[in-house]
Design a protein around this nucleic acid. Sequence first.
RNA 1: GCCCGGGUGGUGGAACUGGUAGACACGCAGGACUUAAAAUCCUGUGGCCUUUGCGGCUGUACGGGUUCGAUUCCCGUCCCGGGUACCA
Length: 642
Amino acid sequence: MGRRTEEERSTQANFIEVFTTRPDTIFGVSFLTLAPEHELVKQITTDEQRAEVEAYVQVAANRSERERMSDVKRISGVFTGAYANHPFTGEKIPVWIGDYVLAGYGTGAVMAVPAGDQRDYDFAKHFKLPIPEINEGVDISEAADPTKDAVMINSGFLNGLTGHQAIKKAIEEIKNQGFGEGKVNFRLRDAGFSRQRYWGEPFPIIYQKGVATGLPADELPLELPVMEDFKPTGRPESPLAKAEDWVQTSHGERETDTMPGYAGSSWYFLRYMDARNQDNFVGKEAESYWQDVDLYIGGTEHAVGHLLYARFWQKFLFDRGFVSKSEPFRKLINQGMILGRSNFVYRVQGENKYISHDMLKKHPEIQASAVHVDVNMVQNDVLDTKAFLKWRPENEGAEFILNENGEYVCGVEVEKMSKSKFNVVNPDDIIEKFGADTLRLYEMFLGPLEQSKPWNTNGIEGVYRFLKKLWNLFYDDQGKLKIRDGQASESELRTLHKTIRKVEEDIERFSFNTSVSTFMICVNELSELKCNNRSILRDLLVILSPYAPHIAEELWHAIGESGFVVDALFPQWNEDFIKESSVSYPVAFNGKTRFHISVAAEMPKEEVEKVALSDPEAAKWLNGAKPKKVIVVPGRMVNIVV
RNA sequence: GCCCGGGUGGUGGAACUGGUAGACACGCAGGACUUAAAAUCCUGUGGCCUUUGCGGCUGUACGGGUUCGAUUCCCGUCCCGGGUACCA
């Protein structure tokens, strides 16, 4: 958001309109800067400055906006010779042009406040322009202060206010005096839609004498032509341009660019609601039933790319009355990325020789450059040097500087998995060794869904052991099924129902890592109880099946159930089975837990307090004094204040 | 710079609306079984102090605050990750 002010030119009755988000700093203005393309540049430049200005504009015009944005460091500009009147002080303000000001943003003119804006500051320093102070007690000898917290000085009617307060006041005053107004400024994202490649939806557009016309409905859908060679041409035109028969029609030429990936992905979820509808992209009935997508799970790139476009399309369709929701997705989760763990070797400069990472510090005189090395040749960061020699032809005959243990230790960095970084680990190897269920469970067990982390298989054994323990509930060591029918015990039922409750809650909040530990606790407890009760284990399989589908399905059939476990109903937990008859209360003194008491679950507060205070341990901490206050949180804890 | 996340044992992490910090798992140490190994099982495992036992102190990046009680809430500082940027 920003606000506009206008400044009157002194020599002619002209305005230079500027855009600023910081009208509070208006008394700190010591010059104006126009973009080189600014329309007033020609008019206001004085004769003495004309040659210099024109030369500068020439050079700047030859650089694109992008070039200028990427070349931030170089400060350049030139004085026009003209002055503007400050709208409040009437002071003469020199007008400069500089290519740090972009013609395409705001008005292409900036009121320069060197004390408050670093770019203005750098420009002022470079051309030795004044840097008036406007913030009390702020050091601007080295850099500008862009914050709004300091109290304003040398600022006329704004003196004594902070920047935050002054913004409002300044806009009011500018409006009152009639030379500016508050305004919201938008900046458009660069959104090129066309692609010069074969794969993508073709545009249903025909050019008739250069005028784009939409295809009539009976010619839709437009399909891509079959082509022998659909590789990019290397020239600006799309590969489709080569399909002459397709491009030339009786009523004009077809558009040959195709649509980008997000064109289809921006609305496919609407099509899914009613995929067989021949007349509309989605029927009214289906749309009003499904409406929107409950949950969108994707990486962060999706949040900025795909989501932006999908929301835009949905908004458009909503405004035109085709869909009933203006937002397509109700909830977004950005899952974290599993990162790679890269290994490096260090090539000694100018030699076919590699130095171990830990030896680098001991030989600071050796210059070496880090080179990615395939992580599959590395075990616990120690390089398999034989494999390395054979890895690539140029490694042949390479020498190594090893450490005291005779090992070559590699350097480590965490980065995105990528073939070029040789840090890709193939899940197939894990599946080969531990099975797909172990991989799936382990990925969940690693931590919260939304967190990024390096792939590390250190803990995978634990998950694998868990599945073996689960298996052992069903089979004895001879491989014979040991399931029994009959009534489940109280403790078996408590374990099962606690687990159902916890897993249900965890699913609701996408906390899959805690579900996995809940299953581990459950199987540990059932093993302890030597549980082989059919009904208990049956329900356990049902709730486990989304997490470890293969083993759950196999055991489901082994115990003689029909159909598939994925189709089974998620069991209901029952409070009565979970309830404990007695509860253990921690007893704290001034918030520090000192001992525990075990009392009946239903015991009222007053009773619990009595039990706690009459415990022999309590006397030690009371030390003869009377408690000031006793807090009993039912079912939770007791705190005694002394 | 701005906008989002985040900082808890040797490691990954748990602790739901403020109520026993470290669940579960890895690793490590010790033990059982075995001729031996693997597998499996048992015990211990934040730090410091205490000869043992009993126990005590301390501890969730750092400094304050609110509260009977703070990993959790508030204020400030530091650090890390991601996004974004000559956008005035």
